[in-house]
Write a protein that binds this DNA or RNA. Structure first.
Lengths: 224, 224
DNA sequence: CAAACACATGTTGTATACAATATGTGTTTG
DNA sequence: CAAACACATATTGTATACAACATGTGTTTG
C-alpha cells in the first residue's frame, strides 16, 4: 500500500463526511476545527480545504471559514440534467470503443448490484453505481470526457447516495443500468440515448422529495 | 480595487506565463524557484501550484517539483474535439435563452475583434475570442455547463493564442464567430451546429503544425 | 440615548524552521 | 571491477509562530 500524505488523508476523510451527509449542507467549519479534530496541523488541512473548494464541495467565506456547499433544488436539477447531456456524448463514444473485457466488468457490476440491493448494503449500491458509470467513461477513450464526467459524477454522489437509500429507487436505477448495458452491447444508439434520458429523469423526479426529507432529518438531529 | 492575496497574485502570474508560452511545456519548476523569483515565501506558491495542478496546467512530480503540462498532439485534438461537443449543448441552450442585450455584446465583440485583427493586437484577439465563447456559456443559463465549458476553455487558451498568431487563422476564426452569431440570432439549430463543428475542425487541422513550430521555437530559444 | 471609537476575539494569510523522502554520487568492499 | 552502501543534496511535507484582517462588543463621548 502506498504511503499517503496527511493532506490526502484529510481530504479523503472530509470528502467522505460531506458526501455521506455527516457534515450536512450549510454547516460552517474552520481550519482549526478540522485540524484539532484530526490531530494534525493547519497546513495539510488548509490544502485539503482548498481542493474541496475548487471541486465545489465547499464554499470559502473570506476570513470566516468555509461552508459545506448546499445546492438549491434548482441547481441540483441543473447538475443532473446537464451531467446526463454530457454523458450522452461519452456513452455514445463508449459504445463504439468498448472492449469485451469491459463489457464483462459491466455485467459483473450489474450482478453485484443486484446482490447489494438484496442485502440492503446501500453504501455498496452507490459505490457500484459510481463504478458502472466510470467504466463507461473510460471506454469513451477520451481524457477530456473522462475528466469532465468524473468531476460531474463526484458532484452528484451525495445525492445518488440518498436516492439509493430508498429501495424502490435503487431497483429502478438498476433497471436503467441494465437497459444501458444492453444498448451498448447491441450498439443501439437510439435505445442508449433513451435509457440515459430515463435514468436522469427518474433522479430529477425524486431528488426534490429526497432532499426535503434529508433537510428535515438534519434539522431534527441538530435540535435534539 | 480589491486587495489580492499573494496566493492569487502568484497564481495569476504563473498562469499567464504558462498560457502565453513564456514557460513552455515540459519545463520543470520548483516551489523555491518560484518563491525566490517572486520574492514571497513558499506557502502562497505551494497553494497556487496546487491549484494549477488541479486545473491540469501543471503536473506534480512527487518530491521532484512540477512540470508545465505538455499535451501530446493526440490529447490536444481530443481536447478541442470534445470541448466542441460539449459546447454544442451549451450553445443550443444559449440560443434559446439569450437576451437582446447579450446579442448586442456579441455583436460588439465581433466588431472589436475585426479591429484587433487589423491592428495586429494578437493578445487582444485571443481575449476577445475567449470572451465571445464565455458570453454564450453564460447565456445557456446553466451553472454546470458554464463551469465545464469555462474549464475546458481555459485548457485551450494557450493553443488558441498560438493559432491566432497566424493572421489567416484569426480571420478564419472570426468568420466562424460571425456564423455562430447569426445562427443564434436566427435560432437556426442546424446552422449553429455546423458552424461550431467547422470552428473546431479548423483548429484541429492547424494545431499540429502550430505546435511543431512552437516546439522548435522553444528549442532554439533554449539552445542559444 | 446614540454614535463612534477602541479593543478583544476569531479566522485566514504568510513566513519560517524542521522533518521526511527521493535521487544521485562517491566510497567501500567482496 | 561491480555491487552495495552511506552520505550529501534537492525537494516536497508538516508544524508553528506571527501578521493581517474582519467582526462583534463594550465603553466612551457628544
Amino acid at each position: 500500500m502506498k504511503k499517503k500524505s496527511l493532506r490526502s488523508k484529510v481530504y479523503t476523510s472530509l470528502r467522505s463526511d460531506i458526501i455521506s451527509g455527516k457534515l450536512s449542507g450549510g454547516t460552517r467549519i474552520t481550519e482549526n476545527f478540522i485540524a484539532n479534530s484530526l490531530g494534525v496541523s493547519r497546513t495539510p488541512v488548509r490544502e485539503a480545504l482548498q481542493k474541496l473548494t475548487q471541486e465545489k464541495l465547499l464554499v470559502a467565506i473570506p476570513k470566516a471559514g468555509y461552508l459545506i456547499e448546499d445546492l438549491s433544488d434548482y441547481d441540483i436539477q441543473d447538475l443532473f440534467e446537464n451531467r446526463m447531456q454530457i454523458e450522452q456524448i461519452a456513452f455514445q463514444k463508449a459504445s463504439q470503443n468498448i472492449t469485451p473485457e469491459e463489457l464483462k466488468i459491466l455485467d459483473d457490476n450489474l450482478e453485484n448490484t443486484k446482490a447489494a440491493i438484496k442485502s440492503g448494503n446501500n453504501f455498496q449500491v452507490t459505490e457500484l453505481d459510481i463504478a458502472f458509470h466510470e467504466i463507461i467513461y473510460k471506454a469513451a477513450r477520451s481524457k477530456t470526457l473522462f475528466r469532465v464526467c468524473k468531476n460531474l459524477s463526484d458532484l452528484t454522489v451525495k445525492y445518488r447516495y440518498w436516492l439509493n437509500l430508498i429501495p424502490n429507487l435503487s431497483n429502478e436505477s438498476l433497471k436503467h443500468h441494465i437497459m444501458i448495458y444492453q444498448s451498448i452491447l447491441s450498439k443501439d444508439t437510439q435505445k442508449l440515448s433513451q435509457a440515459l434520458l430515463q435514468h436522469a429523469q427518474y433522479a430529477n423526479i425524486h431528488i426534490v422529495g429526497v432532499m426535503k426529507k434529508q433537510r428535515s432529518d438534519a434539522f431534527s438531529k441538530e435540535d435534539f
